[in-house]
Structure formats: C-alpha cells, structure tokens
Design a protein around this nucleic acid. Structure first.
Length: 683
DNA sequence: TTTAGGG
DNA sequence: CCCTAAA
C-alpha cells in the first residue's frame, strides 16, 4: 500500500505539476523574456502557485484526483482519446483502416490481433468516462492537433507505441539490466501475472529515488491488468496491448480514489525541483508561463479535468513546439534514448535505457526516472510527448521482441506498425523537403549533396513533416500522409530517429537498431525515393554516416522550427555549426570577390549547396571573422582560423568598406550620368 | 527577401 | 545564432 501510495503520489504530483511548468520556453522572444534573474523568481512563484494549486486540488475533489491520476491515465488514455476523439462511430474506421491513409494499414496491423468490437467498446467506455476530455486531450496528448482521420490513425499508432513503452519501462526497472527481449515479455507477464502488487513493488524498489511518472504509469497498468487477468490469458500478442489499453482505461476511469489521496509535499518539492531544472534546461517562454500557470491553477482549483484538459488543448500548439524543443534540445531525449538503448541493449540488454537515459538527458543527475516522469507528468504535453518518444523506441522494442519473444504474432504486429509509421513519416519528410527548402529539393534531385549537405538534406526531409499544411505537400508527392500538421512532428520525430538510424544503421555502433530496422526492411523502401541517394552518399562517406544521426536530429528539431516559426511557433535555436576552415576559406574568397554587401550573392556563390548556411549566417560569420582577426590570437576561441585567412579577411574588409562607398558613389554618378544622357537624348 | 546591425 | 528594422 505504501508503495502504491508513493507511486500514486508521484503520479499525482506529476500530473498536477504540469500546470506549473507549462510555460513554454520562448527562446526567441527576448522582449517577452524577462531577464535571467527574474526567471528564477518567476519559477519560484510558479512553483508556489503550483503548490497551492496542488493543495487545492487535493482537497477539492475526486475530480481533481482523476485529473491527477491522469498522468498514467492520460498517457494511456491518449490512445483511446485519439480513437474516440473525433467520432466514436469512426472507431471502426480508424481501427479498421477504412481510411485511405496509410494509417489504415497501420490500424489494421495493430488491431488485427484484437477484436475491434471489444476494443471499440472499450473506447466507447472510455469516452463515457472521460467525457469530452478525450477529444481535446487526445489531440494534445498525441502530439499535436490532429486534424484528419489520418492523423487519428497515426495517433493510434503512437498510442500503441506508447503503451508498449510504458510496459517496457515498468518492466525494465524490474528486469534491471539484462533482459532485452525478455523485458517486454517479462514485463508484461509480470504485470499481468503478478498483478498490480508485484508491479508496484518492482517499481518501488527500483525507484528508491524519486518515482517515475512512467513507473507510475506502469504500475497503473499493472493494476489494471490484474483485474483483467482473464484477458491476459487470452493472448500474449496483440491482446496484451489491447488489454493494457483497456486496463489503462479502466484505471483511468476509476482510480480516483487511489490517486487522490496520495500527494505528498515531498513529492511536490521534487516536482518543483524537477520542473525547475527542466525549465532551466529548456528555454522558457515567459509569455506562456504566466498564462499557463493561471490556467493550470484555475483548472486545478476549479478542478474540472475537462477544463484542464481543454486548457492544455488550447495551449497545445505552443506546447508542442516546446516539446519538440525539449526533445530536440534534449536530443538526447529522443535520439539519445534510442541510441543509448540501442547501444546498450546489446550489452546489458534493455537496461532501463529509457529511464536512465531519459533521466540523464533531462537532468544529468538526480533521479533519472523522476526527471522523465516529471517532464511527462508535469508538462502535460511533455509527458505525452515523452511517451511518444518512447513510441519511437517502440521500434526498438519490437526489434528485440521478435528475437526473444515467443509470440510471433506480436512481433509481426509491432513490426508492421513501426514500418507503417516510419513509412508515413518518411513520406512526410520528403514532402516537407520540397516545401521547406527549395534547395533541399534541388539537392535531392540533383543528388549533388555531399557529406554535410547530405546530412542537411536528410534533415530537411524530416523537416517537411512539420510543414504547415501537410496535406498539400503530401498530395504533391504521395498519397496523403496520415500525419497531421502537428502530429507530424510527433510522427516525424519518431520517424526521424528510425530514419536516422536506418541511415545510421550502417553505423557499427548501433547494431540493435540495425537489426531491428532490418526486419522492417520495407522501411527503407518507403524512405527510399528521396533518401536513396542521400543514403548512398551517407553510406559512402564514413564521416557522413556518423553525423547522420545528429543531422537527422537536427533536422527534426529544425523542422518544427521552420514551419512553426513562421506560423506561430517558437523555433528552436538552430544547432550550432561552427564554420570549418574550408568554409571560412570559401567565404573569404567569395567576399574578396563580391564584397561585403552582397551576402546573398556570396551565399549563392560559395555556399549554394550548404543549405544550413544562410546569407545571414555568412554575414554573421564574416562579422565574427573580422572581429576575430582584430583581436589577439590569445583571445580567439574555437577552431583556430589560419592567420593568412584572417589577414585576408581584414584586407577584404578594409578594401570593401572603402570600395563599397566608392562604388556607391560611382553607381550614383553613373546613374546621374545616365539620367542626364537620357534626358539629353529625349529632347 | 535581403541588408545591416544589435543582442 | 537570433531578431528586426529598413530597404
């Protein structure tokens, strides 16, 4: 019991906390941003507010409890929400895959094992329980907003993944280091077999430190499972998943009792800390913070989950961005996790990469699990997001599963699902490329891209997914991608990793991924058209290969930015890409030739193939070069630039600073002359 | 969109 | 790198 309480508490906290941290971090808007010192202050204030809110919630009612409970619940629920979300009636469609979207296939895959009817029924139940929450939340939860059915499908997929991930996490802790493959099965089994208690214990043990929201989630799942022992019996494969969902749902719907009672101040503090850290890590959007806080508090107080969810929903868009950022920033996060897990898995097995990695990523220290959970729980979006991330991992899981898993059907299902998802994502990415950057398109077509370029290109491909309106893009090249605008990110991300991995696959470091990916083979094909060349190139160049993952990551991160930035979102700061000496050399040469006032021409002349270098970048680089050249060598940092280049920089700078003026004068003079001539001619 | 500059 | 005011 105690253990349970703890976990529950965490969950609650985690959930509640979200209200606090919600604030997106706006990196860019300095104007909005208050000065750094103040930030901290705000955070505190927020925390306080959050705390208060939490108390209120505690006292308030079951409803609050439900909301709190939501963490795990939400996560799980997402799926349901998604499904239910728009039209319960459609459930069949979604599941059935009537939709043309790729998703349809996905849906079929996933649910093939399950009985749709039963599932549907569950979903409906969920709806009833959840009520309106589902739709808004779902959208938010899943990733972003999902507009179309296709999106729905995607979400479903994601949710499925999520589920898996949850399970895995829960199990992983238990399993400890080893059990790659086993983990899943083992986990699942444990959960079901042992029932909630065992699951709980495991979690507790593991989480001597702060508990994870994830863990909590898992526990929840476990509990849910117990009741449904019968269902467990039925099947290992798909059924399991379904059961999980169901279980989750059930829990979600019911659990208030449990959930509510448990919040502990300590936990709150932890949350706060976590949240604060979290925020620190990521830039904060002040504008959002306040609003969020308010909303969160209100919601809590009022405590209607619905309202809360709605809140989230509304905020969704912004949050999403943030999420992305977080991820991207954390890169580590998605990529890291997956990578780590992958790399580690061979040796240690799953080894909780998720928890550990996540924790690491988020906070370097502290309890990893808590950190992750935190994020997830705290930022409503985050939590979900993370889940989604895991879904990313899902591929990994599935990979492992096939090997060790006894249930072949399960494997297949997972693989198919993954493949489908990947395929969808890839397409999206491609489309996006076209949209996002013309250069990208050219590059791809031309295939002139080389190492770095290739990387970029790839990233671009990924980016496309975010494209503001996927539909048009999608249409252009391929059948409509299931991914919704917002969701795309989500999908893309997941996809991206896989893609990157697939590309990266060649990388020796990550055998797991490779293996896992291989099975899906089809994935590559899907990716193929645009990526093909890139892939080859990447492959061809060992260096390129290594970078690829990063690139992909960047691309992902970037993607959201690009689209978002223009549209409404905040962009993540672009990854820093120091200029290489060769680049500097090219820049100097171009500037010597063109002067310092024609950056666009410089770009076209010397960096046309460097998509990631904008003329602004070049201008900035020149600026820094000039500065660098003027300071003493001891003061210079970073990769040393050959003195001769710096000398040339100064020479060119001084030359063009004069020449430009002269030219202007000349031009003016010429113009004047021309004008005169013209005039003279006219009469 | 591109420049030019400040942050 | 980012952001923006001005072209």
């Amino acid at each position: 019991m105690v253990l349970l309480k703890r976990t529950l508490d965490h969950v609650v906290n985690g959930y509640r906390s979200p209200a606090i941290p919600r604030a997106p971090r706006s990196i860019r808007k300095r104007g909005f941003r208050q000065k750094t010192p103040e930030n901290g202050g705000q955070v505190c204030a927020f925390e306080l507010l959050a705390t208060v809110a939490g108390k209120l919630l505690e006292e308030s009612e079951c409803s609050s409890a439900s909301s709190s409970a939501a963490v795990g619940f939400d996560q799980c629920r997402i799926d349901k929400d998604v499904v239910v979300k728009k039209e319960p009636l459609d459930v069949d469609k979604t599941l059935g895959g009537e939709h043309d979207d790729q998703g349809s296939s996905e849906g079929s895959v996933f649910f093939s094992g399950l009985q749709r009817d039963s599932f549907k029924g569950k979903l409906e139940k969920v709806n009833e329980v959840t009520g309106m929450d589902a739709s808004p939340f779902a959208s938010s939860a899943c990733s972003e907003k999902v507009d179309s059915d296709s999106k729905l499908v995607t979400q479903k997929i994601n949710s499925l993944f999520v589920k898996h991930s949850c399970k895995v996490d829960g199990s992983s802790p238990k399993c400890g280091e080893s059990d790659d493959i086993n983990i899943e099965n083992g986990l699942i089994r444990k959960l079901y077999t042992n029932g909630g208690a065992s699951g709980v214990n495991a979690t507790a043990n593991k989480s001597s430190a702060p508990t994870n929201s994830e863990e909590n989630v898992n526990l929840t799942l476990g509990r849910g499972a117990n009741p449904n022992a019968s269902s467990l019996k039925e099947g290992n494969d798909v059924k399991i998943n379904c059961k999980d969902n169901d279980e989750i749902l059930s829990q979600c719907s019911k659990p208030n009792n449990i959930m509510k009672a448990f919040r502990s101040p300590a936990c709150d503090e932890d949350n706060k800390l976590l949240s604060s850290k979290y925020w620190k890590t990521a830039p904060k959007l002040k504008d959002y913070e306040p609003s969020n806080t308010d909303g969160g508090l209100k919601n809590n107080d009022t405590s209607k989950r619905p309202s809360y969810e709605i809140d989230r929903f509304q905020r969704n868009t912004p949050f999403k961005k943030r999420r992305l950022f977080d991820r991207s920033s954390v890169v580590t996060y998605d990529g890291g996790i997956s990578c780590e897990s992958v790399s580690n898995s061979p040796e240690k097995g799953l080894d909780d990469e998720k928890n550990a990695s996540a924790g690491k990523l988020l906070e370097g220290k502290g309890t990893p699990s808590s950190g992750l959970c935190r994020q997830k729980s705290c930022n409503s979006r985050n939590s979900q997001v993370r889940l989604s991330i895991k879904s990313f991992k899902v591929p990994e899981l599935f990979i492992e599963v096939p090997e060790s898993t006894t249930v072949g059907s399960l494997k297949r299902t997972v693989l198919e699902a993954v493949t489908t998802i990947l395929g969808g994502g890839l397409r999206v990415g491609v489309l996006l490329q076209g949209k996002t950057v013309r250069d990208d398109n050219r590059t791809l077509l031309q295939s002139g891209i080389s190492q770095s370029d290739d990387m970029d290109t790839i990233g671009f491909m990924l980016e496309p997914n975010n494209p503001t309106q996927p539909s048009p893009l999608v249409c252009s090249q391929e059948p409509p991608p299931p991914v919704p605008c917002d969701s795309p990110k989500f999908v893309n991300r997941s996809q991206v990793n896989p893609n990157g991995n697939s590309f990266a696959i060649k990388t020796p470091e990550k055998p797991f991924l490779t293996d896992s990916i291989k099975p899906s083979g089809s994935i590559k094909d899907l990716v193929s058209y645009p990526s093909t060349e890139l892939t080859d190139k990447t492959l061809s160049k060992s260096k390129a290969i290594v970078p690829v993952p990063e690139e992909s990551m960047e691309a992902l991160a970037v993607v959201p930015m690009n689209q978002r930035s223009k549209r409404s979102d905040i962009g993540q700061r672009r990854t820093r890409r120091p200029f290489s000496v060769s680049e500097v050399e090219a820049l100097v040469r171009a500037v010597e030739k063109l002067g310092t006032g024609r950056w666009r021409d410089v770009k076209l002349c010397a960096f046309e193939n460097a998509k990631h270098r904008t003329y602004v970048d070049l201008k900035d680089k020149w600026k820094t070069l000039v500065h660098t050249a003027r300071i003493s060598p001891q003061q210079r940092r970073g990769e040393p630039v050959p003195q001769d280049l710096l000398d040339r920089v100064l020479a060119a700078q001084s030359y063009w600073s004069e020449h430009q003026a002269k030219q202007h004068g000349k031009q003016q003079q010429q113009q004047g002359i021309i004008a005169k001539l013209t005039d003279s001619v006219r009469p």
